[in-house]
Design a protein around this nucleic acid. Sequence first.
DNA 1: GTCTATACGGCGATAGAC
DNA 2: GTCTATCGCCGTATAGAC
Lengths: 204, 204
Amino acid sequence: MPEAADGRAQTTSRREQLLAIAAEQFATKGYKFTTVRDIAEAAGILSGSLYHHFDSKESMVDEVLRTFQAELFGRYEAILASDADARTKLEQAVEVSFETIDRHPHEVAIFQNEAAHLGAFERFAYLAERNRESRAVWITLLEDGVRAGALRAELDVELTYRFIRDTVWVAVAWYRPGGRRSHTEVARQYLTILLDGIAAREES
Amino acid sequence: MPEAADGRAQTTSRREQLLAIAAEQFATKGYKFTTVRDIAEAAGILSGSLYHHFDSKESMVDEVLRTFQAELFGRYEAILASDADARTKLEQAVEVSFETIDRHPHEVAIFQNEAAHLGAFERFAYLAERNRESRAVWITLLEDGVRAGALRAELDVELTYRFIRDTVWVAVAWYRPGGRRSHTEVARQYLTILLDGIAAREES
DNA sequence: GTCTATACGGCGATAGAC
DNA sequence: GTCTATCGCCGTATAGAC
């Protein structure tokens, strides 16, 4: 990652490298369990040197989460704005989510594991805001689905939203990029369960 | 809780009281974020006094988790051993899980949030063992369901197990005992989604 | 069974040399 | 941009009086 063979833009700045290293540590050991000395060591420098690049350990998670969320929500908005039918949009939202787990597993893990704690500080108030946005996206998708007749009418939309959100994001705990199942495959299987259930259909 | 009006066993020992207080703190703030001074203060004593009852902060989580797991797995075993049909057993396992969230929300939360970190230490090796046991329970239920013709034959059992486990336990993050939906109601709704899916059935 | 007092270590962060 | 050195704080845990 650090070197580009040809002369083309080697855009990964030192700052971004360090953030990527920090993100990996935060994701695997947890934010609180990761010391600035851990991050520095993984980067091959000493802890004091980190403060040339960042104000504090807190600033590091902050930047990691902000960047990640901006990208993710950009993609959700694109889906909402498209003119696909309700069921397709729902499927796309699920696919984008699993793709995000595939591409940014560390960032997703940090968000999953630390958002609750961090959200308590004013600095991280945007996390709660993003949570509300996310809920709005899924609820809209589900309600549109019901209205269009694609989803069952008696659906408890609120509960369904929670189940979807939980299952999709918690998958970061076991999904391994480059593993046996691709993110596309996982999304497809998941959608089958979600849409059609696991029970055998009785022939009528 | 501390007092029993009649002469009958007032079984909540001081030890159990302290453990309950610790569990609540661990669950809401996280194990690492909870200091022994926090626990002591919540109990109305000083931190040094805690060490009259327990070796260490670690011993406290340990005891909380061990007790909880023993009870939960006892219930799973009872279901497996019963002579109900495959679909009923699966439903019962889901119901027991939500009931456990209702009765022991703190313990479930601690297990959910801390098991990954704690599992690294030999002292908590049993957490990984319980995880394997849990997987065995669900996989058995699912495979029996497929064999009995109650569940779809093409089911990816491994993936389905993960989705069930994730959704059921993560519900501890939002389920509130005594709230608007009872655990029985949540379990029922969840089973509908899981078994029959959320898509409208096309009339054949 | 609880308190007072305190040890010991590791953490985040800073100042200034190179 | 990194290193050396170090500060101040807060965490767990201990020893012994009451």
